[in-house]
């Protein structure tokens, strides 16, 4: 099974990119399945099923970090996609947790960023960018060529290893090179691992304690003036 996991901030164009990628893959004779992971609301699965007639699903991560949720469900999702007759699984995550990245060591990890966002976005998205294989820059139709080039350079400063591809996802311009990367990536395999090291430790806020101030909490805590430390047993 081929696998592409697509992360990125909300409304950057993840669905718009995957829609064109799926369409191109279908035209090349591949069978595509689509999974959307979101925190509380998503309708991409219905849209893409209706437009492209492909098997789609969604899961709501609810209490879990969406990236953690994708780790939990990915095994099942690959089995589901295979049972549905697909040879490529496209996963769109919400990408809200900027400490984690959902990419695994099989398949392609791609982050979608919009050229219209501030020049500091590449500095803010952490492992979601640095652990990706490919950074897709959308909305190039909305900015000047000079801004596109400077935005690309900002990505290169943070993540020199990550390939950058620019697209206009509204008109599907620049999609072919992304499809080539999806098809060139290593296949998904039994026993895949998450890339990089997820941040360790939870805190009492994670389990629902709402008091303000670190003095009320245990586990990994953080005062304003000091670094994070561990409080408790």
């Amino acid at each position: 099974m081929r696998l592409a996991i697509c992360a990125g901030p909300a409304t950057t164009g993840k669905t718009a990119v995957l829609r064109h990628v799926a369409r191109k893959l279908l035209s090349l004779g591949h069978k595509v399945a689509f999974l959307k992971i979101d925190v509380q609301y998503a309708e991409e699965d219905e849209q893409l099923a209706a437009e492209l007639g492909i098997p789609t699903r969604k899961v709501y991560s609810g209490e879990l970090c969406p990236d953690h949720c994708s780790v939990m469900v990915l095994g099942d999702a690959l089995a589901w996609a295979a049972a549905a007759g697909a040879d490529v699984l496209l996963v769109e995550t919400a990408g809200l947790c900027l400490r984690c990245a959902p990419y695994v060591d099989g398949g392609l990890g791609l982050i979608v960023m919009e050229a219209t966002s501030g020049m500091n976005l590449p500095l803010k998205v952490g492992p979601m960018l640095s652990l990706a294989d490919l950074a897709v820059v959308t909305k190039i139709d909305r900015v000047s060529q000079a801004e596109r080039e400077v935005f690309r350079a900002r990505i290169g400063e943070v993540a020199p290893r990550v390939k950058v591809r620019e697209v206009n996802a509204l008109h599907g311009i620049g999609i072919d090179p992304i499809v080539e990367e999806v098809l060139a990536a290593p296949l998904a395999f039994e026993g895949m691992q998450l890339r990089g090291n997820p941040p360790v430790g939870t805190c009492t806020i994670c389990v629902g304690k709402k008091d303000i101030g670190w003095q009320s909490h245990f586990g990994v805590v953080r005062p304003l003036d000091n670094q994070t430390f561990y409080r408790g047993e």
Partner: peptide, 12 residues
């Protein structure tokens, strides 16, 4: 390419 844009979105 000098585009038709008359605003920059880059906050630098």
């Amino acid at each position: 390419l000098i585009t038709q844009h008359t605003t920059f979105l880059s906050d630098l």
